[in-house]
């Protein structure tokens, strides 16, 4: 059997909220070491990669590997039943046809249970090659979310330039062009060598969808390398990571 309990059920609710506009039907892989999910959006331009380690759960048991095909759209509807401060338990049998979700409030006087029907999906698993990222930067997730929203009003596309010490977001649209440069480190030792920077352009529409995850973490990590998808990574405290990959725009 499989059973996983999170004391703070709203974390799981936020994760589902943060991916529901990108992916619809997904396979959640439950293994003895944790839960993971990898799915692409319908246009194959963005990929969601979630890993939650067993040690972050209050209780975790998974006797054998299970693939749980689930509609994220429907799961998001069920998540509306999760209230602030509720715990959440996910459980199923070994050959499951449904996933049971149990939410309980802190006083233990209110319990909600729902069985979500499982679906069979072709798994289209993509192997993400080991990548040496040229540029990595961690910044405030709220700030990143806000600036992506504002830049989207000015342009559909943003050009990223990131290094070890700064990140620059440049846009060019019908009304003009501009950029936001954020200095993130004043470490002299770091700047003594020439900085490697990479410039890549991305669709702001997708970045805004990724930013629905900003409430999961105060920080967001951006990783870039030439001709490689951007990685936007949110650490889910003590539980795991939620990563989004986005294909760069290219001049045809």
């Amino acid at each position: 059997m499989f059973e996983a309990k999170l004391t703070d059920g709203t974390i799981f609710k936020k994760i589902i909220e943060a991916i529901k506009d990108l992916v619809t039907d997904v396979n959640i892989d439950a293994t003895p070491t944790g839960l993971s999910l990898q799915a692409m959006d319908s246009s194959h331009v963005a990929l969601v990669n979630l890993h939650l380690g067993m040690e972050g759960f209050e209780r975790y048991r998974c006797d054998r590997n299970l693939t749980l095909g689930i509609s994220i759209t429907n799961l998001a509807k069920v998540m509306k039943l999760v209230n602030q401060n509720d715990s959440i338990t996910l459980k199923c049998e070994d050959e499951p046809t449904y996933l049971t979700i149990v939410c309980q409030n802190q006083k233990h006087d209110r319990t909600t249970q729902f069985n979500v029907n499982l679906i069979t999906l072709d798994s289209e698993h993509l192997g993400i090659p080991e990548t040496e990222y040229t540029s990595e930067i961690t910044m405030n997730s709220g700030e990143f979310s806000k600036l992506c929203k504002e830049l989207y009003a000015l342009s559909e596309t943003v050009e990223f330039e990131i290094s070890t010490t700064f990140v620059k977001f440049a846009v060019e649209g019908e009304i003009g062009s501009g950029s936001i440069k954020i200095q993130t480190s004043a470490d002299e030792a770091e700047t003594s060598r020439p900085e490697d920077t990479v410039k890549l352009s991305f669709a702001l529409r997708y970045l805004n969808l990724f930013n629905k995850a900003y409430s999961l973490s105060n920080q967001v990590k951006l990783s870039m390398a030439a001709e490689t998808p951007l990685v936007v990574e949110y650490e889910v405290e003590s539980l795991g990571t939620l990563k989004y990959y986005l294909a760069p725009k290219i001049t045809d």
Partner: peptide, 14 residues
Amino acid sequence: NWTQRDLDQYFIQV
């Protein structure tokens, strides 16, 4: 003209 290559071309089908 901007286009986006599918992720399938960067990642490996397994």
